[in-house]
Structure formats: structure tokens, C-alpha cells
Nucleic acid binder design. Structure first.
Lengths: 222, 222, 222, 222
DNA sequence: TGCTAAGCGAGACGGTACGTCCCGTCTTAAT
DNA sequence: ATTAAGACGGGACGTACCGTCTCGCTTAGCA
């Protein structure tokens, strides 16, 4: 939520206020170092050097390197949008592409170790989930729920599983970094899945093709 | 392939042979430390101490900590089997369960950083792929190819994408460690996917149910 | 001058103060290891182990093993006294015995390598000279100057050469470690030298013998 | 005596003969490395590299690095001469100059550590004494004995002490490396000492001055 | 308005683990 | 039998970086 910090306890009596320029400089430096040297060789001393500040100033703001990295990533991520055009296939395709775009902003060798560090730190894990994991996932979940409400998905299907199968594909590519998942592949993946779980896949497909002729409809979001 | 080392060039004049007990002791110690303290706090000095040897002896065998970890994991993994019962659904279900079992032998906070480190080291990536990634994936790929040859999968479907969608689900669970993927979930995932890509899914399902009455058939592998 | 360190420039902003217990513990451990295993097998790791600290803490205080050894020796050496009884021969004899005593506190196999290392490090050499070499030498030089001022030494004699001839004898024994130079030998060496350079050696000798009856006079120092 | 090795046990049965070129190449390489990098940073691997051979080949010939260094030094030292002109002062002056020349061929930072290592290795010490220490010292001792036999030195004087006082001066300069001891300084040192121990120093001096007019006499040696 | 104390930038600290150099020894193949 | 050659097991090195502590200055709110 907040741009910088985990601290919440209200200071009783004033004291010197925190310099907000340092927050910004540190986040920027962190992102720059991440881009250049990756997560493994990330050094707080280097970050402090670039941000022209000191390690304690950083530790005062974020409880660990992991939290700092997470904050630096979050500060750069574009907010996930939730397309809502009424066309299930269109929404899913675009939604997943946005999902993918989110994670393509992060170097693949950053996500892995960060994720691993979450296993040892419950707090960090919570922040990670709330910051990086849930938002794009929630967007897709919303779209699936809408599709189910519309009756486009069979009643006996567990939407959570579908969600995971789509989400996992994204993470898979982000983590293994094989190659950027193309829009065409996303389309085929959605097709394959929906072919198995839709109540009437041919109808969805036809609807989607009709929509393609009216691209202005794609601007609708929620 | 080999249990210990990267060396392959034929030495001209021999020299003192490597003590194989050290190879074994180091791999064992590495695995033990991984289990106890995880990847992040893995220390070569601790491994050397446990294996009752020294750091140079380790560096002589593996070019980096990552290679060592990979070797230690590989030494413990059970070989992937490729079920071949003629029943597409049965094979896929069992194949994916074996796939999952493979990665459940590895702590989730080990796979992530290891994977991330692969991004920066092409050689390591090659070893990782050849050791951990490809074998179980190849098993599933084989099963999909057989199904396609049998005509169970539509001709216009890219088996590679199906493979990735199944594989990604496994990795997703292994990496994020949400929860162990149950056999029932695997079954539903296969059902959802095959429902979209099979030429005649109901027939496959019926076949599979008939097979369930003859469990001895499941022993057939390739 | 200072017991521990080379730092002199006034720090702008302080920082955490150095733990003086570590200084003491390291010096003590260094001296102990020197006594037990000699200079050649002196190990910073062993010193750190004994002092219950770490190598970086040592390197922060002394720029090299040599400086550390020098500091450890200096911390144990008794200050050189400068006898001043008015009796040239008595003073010289006692002065040189003190000189010798200084270097007998140091293992012969420590001085040699330390000295040798000075050749490659100007700073170290300066510290060595100021710490071990000059003080006892200055004491003898003072005595020779007094003798010359009294007219006990011929005007055409270079006191520096006499000083070196006496000093060299001491170092010679200290370095080669033949045998401890006895007081009788010192006396004969002084006799031989002064016989050649004194204006009136027999008078000096007679004076010295008269003094021998009044040992309380020997307490006079400067 | 022998150019290469300490080994004495005669090989019972033939076997492959030792390559004498390696002996020479190693000694030469050792001397070169000594000159360039000093004793402290002397590395057997570097020597082996330069001599285009291997470490075991070196260890087969010399039992330790110290022995090797000693052999390398000995191979380069010029033999000490013993002047015998009948002129005590002349002989001493020249003898000591030769003494000095011997040690000026050795870097000051080589002698010290080598000497120190002798303390821990009796065999090495013996070789050191027999190779470097005794020969020039014996030359001066011979000259002093001749002088005593001639009656030039007082009967109550311990020639050993005089010898040590002259020798120590040389070592002192060689080890501390203040400055090269000049011939003039040697002359004054001899003058100071002999002034105290000669039976009739003025006569010796006069004799020496007369000899100076007949330089050809200086060619006489024993 | 002045005092006081919390919070700040800054820098050095004690300490862990690193990756490497070099040691002295052992094994193999050739002579 | 003994060599030349090369790799080995291992000890210690000097360094990078960690996370923490102490300092002196700054600033807000209470008196």
C-alpha cells in the first residue's frame, strides 16, 4: 500500500523526520543494481553507495534485503487491469497477457531467490503475495468468475484449478525464462483449456471472432 | 550422467587419482545441509567440515556451489518411469504424478535459487536441464506422442504446449509450495486439458474407467 | 608510541569504537604463538582462534602480520635505561648488557625474518627501527657522546663506528644465536675497543675499578 | 662441495639416471627468483615453472626450500681468499673486504629468514655454516692467528672475540642493510680494534703504510 | 522561546564465508 | 629401480560483505 515502509507504530513524540528523498533514491538504486547485476550479486553496500546514503538508513526503512527488493519491484510494476468486455475468451487472453507483462518486468533470476527467501520469512511471504502474486492472479480470477456467472464454464469445473493452470504457465515462463510466451501461444493455451471446460466452446470462439472486428470494445475494464 | 565431475578430456599423464570417498562424502553432506538449513544458508565451509575434507577438494570437483547442489540433488532423485498401458488418461495421470514426486523430493526453497542461478551460467543451465528438467518432462512428452500416434489427440494441437501446461503446473506447485498437488487435482487438470484437445474425450474416459478394474495392467512401462 | 594502531588522522564522524580487549587479546595471543611455534609457523588464523576473535578484526588493527609481530614484541620489551655514573667503562658495560637483554627477550628465529621483511616494506622498517632498533642504540650513543664530551675518547674517532661495532656484536649474537653473550665478554669487547679509541685507557680502567667498590653509584641514570 | 644434492645413499641398482640439466636449471631459476621477488615470496611452483620442470623433481634433489636456496646461493658465491702479505693491517683490511663482498652478493632479505630457518633444522644449520658462514670467517681467523703468532697481538687477547667483533660488523651491515660498509670504514674499524689489542699499533701502522707503496705484494695469498 | 529527547546520517565495528595460492605427497607411465 | 610429470588432499591467506553499534547533529513538540 504505502510506497516505502513496513513501519506502522506512530511515533509518540516528533524527532527528526525521515528524509523521503532517501526512500526514493534507495528504491531506484536497488532496481538499477538488480537490473545490472541480478539478485545473487546484489549488495546493500553497493545500493547505499549509489543512493548516496548508508546501510543503517536502509535497514531503518526495510527489515531485510528481501523486503527492499520486493518494494523496489513493486514500485516499478504497472497495476494489473481487469478487462471486462463480456467476451470470455477475449478477456482471458488479454488478462493473461497483462499477467505475463507484469512478470516480464522482473528479471527471471530475481523472482526465484526472492520466492525462496519467502519460505523462511512469513512476513515477507505475506508482502510478496500481496504485492506481486495476488493482484494479477485476482484479475484472472475475476474474469473466470464472470465467465462462470455467465454460464460459459461448466458447473462441475473448479475455477481455482483453471486459474492455477493459467497462472502456472505464466510463472513457468517467468522462472525458467525459456522464451517470452507469445500472444498466439496464450491464445492456444486458453483454447485448449476452455475447449475442455467451457459449456459451449464453439459459441465462445464465434463470439470472440465477432469482437475482433470491434476493437474499441476492448477498452472496457473494471 | 557421471556421478561426480565435469572432467572428460583424457589426461596425458595421469597424476594422483581422485579419492572417490570424498565425492560421496561431499554429496551426502551437501544433501544433509540442504535438508537442514536450506539453500540460502548453505555454506561450503560447513559442507567441507561435515564431509571431513576441505574447500579446494570440493572446488576441484565442482566448479561452483550451484553445480555441487545440482549434483547432490541428482544423486538422490529416483529415475523417472514412463508408463505405457495404452490408456492415454491413465498414462498421463501416472506420469504426472511421477513428475510431481520427482520435485517433491526437493525443498521448494532450493529449486528457486538454483533455477535463478542457471540464468547467469549457461553451463549450469545445461546441466540443470539435462539432470532435473528434461527426464521427467521427456516421459510425459513420450506419453503425449503415443497418444497423438494413437489418434487420441487432435491433429491441430501443439503437443509442446500441452506438455508445458502440465509441466508448469508441477513446477508452479513445487516452487510456490502452496500445497502438495493431489492425485485428484492432477486427474482434474488432465481432464480439463484433454477435454479440449482430445479427439474423443468420452471414449478415453470410458477406456480409462475400464482399465481401473485391471490394475495389473499398470505395471507396463517403457 | 601507541600500543595498537597506526591510525592518527582525526576521524570526522567517529563510528563504533574499537574494542580494546581485542587489541590486548591479540597481542597476547601473538606473543604466545611466537614463543611456542616461532615465526615461520605463525598463523593469523591460530592467533585469531586463541584471541577468540577473527582475522578481519586483526587486519583492521595491523596492516600485516609483520606489524602485528612487531607490536607484540614491543609490548613486551622493557624500556632501555641509560646509565649515567660518570664512569665511561661502567656505563658502557651496563648499557650494552641492557642492550643485550632487550634482544634476548626475543627468539632469535623471530628477529631474522622480521628484519628481512622490513627490507620490502618501508613503513614496517620505520616502525621496526623506532620500536626495537633505535631505543637501545640511542642509549649507548648517549653514553658515547658523554664520554667524548668528558674527553675520554680521542677526538679523531667516529663515535658512530664505535656504536655500530658494539651494536653489531649484540645483533650478531641475537641473530645467529650462537650463545648468550656473557657480561665478561662484553667487558672484554669494551676493553678492546676503548683500548684503541680512548685518550687514556688505563685511567678509565682505574676509575672503573674504584667505582666497583661503590655499587650504589650504579643506580644513577638519566 | 657437490654441485647439486644432499643425497648420499648410493643407489643400489641402476635405474634411470638423474637429468643433470635439471639441477642446473633449478639452481639458476632459484637464484633468479630470489633476486626478483626476495625470499618471502619465493615459490617452488614458480621455480619449477621457470626451470621447466616440476616440484617433485626439485624435492628429489633438495630436502626443503631452505636447502635449495642455500645451494643456489653457494653456487654463486665467489670463494674466499686468504691474503697473506705479512702485514697484519693490510691482510685484515683486505680479508674483511672480501668477507663483506661475499655477503653483499646476497640480498639482505634472504639471509635473515634463511638464518632463522636454520634454528629449526640442525642439518640445514650445518650446511649453512659450512657453506656461507665459516669460509670467510675462517679466512679472517687465519689472519688473526698469523698476527698473533707474529706477536702483533697482545697475548691476553681472545682472538675469537676480535674475530666476532669484525665478523659481526659485516653481518650487521648485511642484515640491516643500512648502507654498504666502505673500505674506509673497515680501515677505521680495524684501526680502532687493533689500537686496543695490538702490542705495538704504531709499528703495524707504519708497516702498513710502507706496504702501500708496493701494491704487487698484495697478490700473495694462501 | 528554549529544552529535551527521539530520530537521523554517517562510519567503523565484530564477524562469516568466500575463492585462491601454495604446500608437500602420491600415483602413473616412461626410461 | 628410478625417474619425470601431473593431480591430489589440505592449510592458510587476504577480502567482500553482512548486520550492528556508536557517534554527533538535526528537528519537532513540550515546557
Amino acid at each position: 500500500m504505502e510506497s516505502s515502509s513496513q513501519r506502522s507504530a506512530a511515533p509518540k513524540h516528533g524527532g527528526r523526520p525521515r528524509d523521503p528523498q532517501i526512500d526514493a533514491a534507495v528504491l531506484e538504486a536497488t532496481f538499477a543494481v538488480l537490473e545490472e547485476t541480478g539478485y545473487a550479486h546484489l549488495t546493500l553496500e553497493e545500493i547505499a553507495r549509489r543512493a548516496e546514503t548508508t546501510k543503517p538508513a536502509i535497514y531503518r526503512r526495510w527489515p531485510s534485503r528481501q523486503h527492499l527488493v520486493l518494494a523496489a519491484l513493486a514500485a516499478r510494476l504497472t497495476a494489473a487491469r481487469t478487462p471486462n468486455t463480456g467476451c470470455t475468451l477475449c478477456d482471458l487472453n488479454e488478462g493473461i497477457n497483462v499477467f505475463i507483462a507484469t512478470f516480464q518486468q522482473i528479471r527471471p533470476d530475481v523472482l526465484g531467490p526472492l520466492l525462496a527467501d519467502c519460505a523462511a520469512d512469513t512476513t515477507l511471504r505475506g508482502v510478496f503475495m500481496a504485492t506481486l502474486f495476488d493482484p494479477p492472479r485476482a484479475a484472472v480470477a475475476t474474469m473466470l468468475d464472470r465467465a462462470a456467472a455467465r454460464g460459459d464454464i461448466r458447473f462441475d469445473i473448479d475455477c481455482g484449478l483453471i486459474l492455477d493452470m493459467l497462472g502456472s504457465l505464466v510463472h513457468y515462463r517467468a522462472l525458467f525464462g525459456h522464451a517470452p510466451t507469445t500472444e498466439a501461444e496464450v491464445e492456444r493455451a486458453v483454447e485448449a483449456l476452455m475447449g475442455g471446460v467451457a459449456t459451449d466452446y464453439p459459441a465462445l470462439l464465434e463470439h470472440s471472432l465477432r469482437m475482433a472486428g470491434h476493437p474499441e470494445a476492448h477498452a472496457a475494464h473494471t
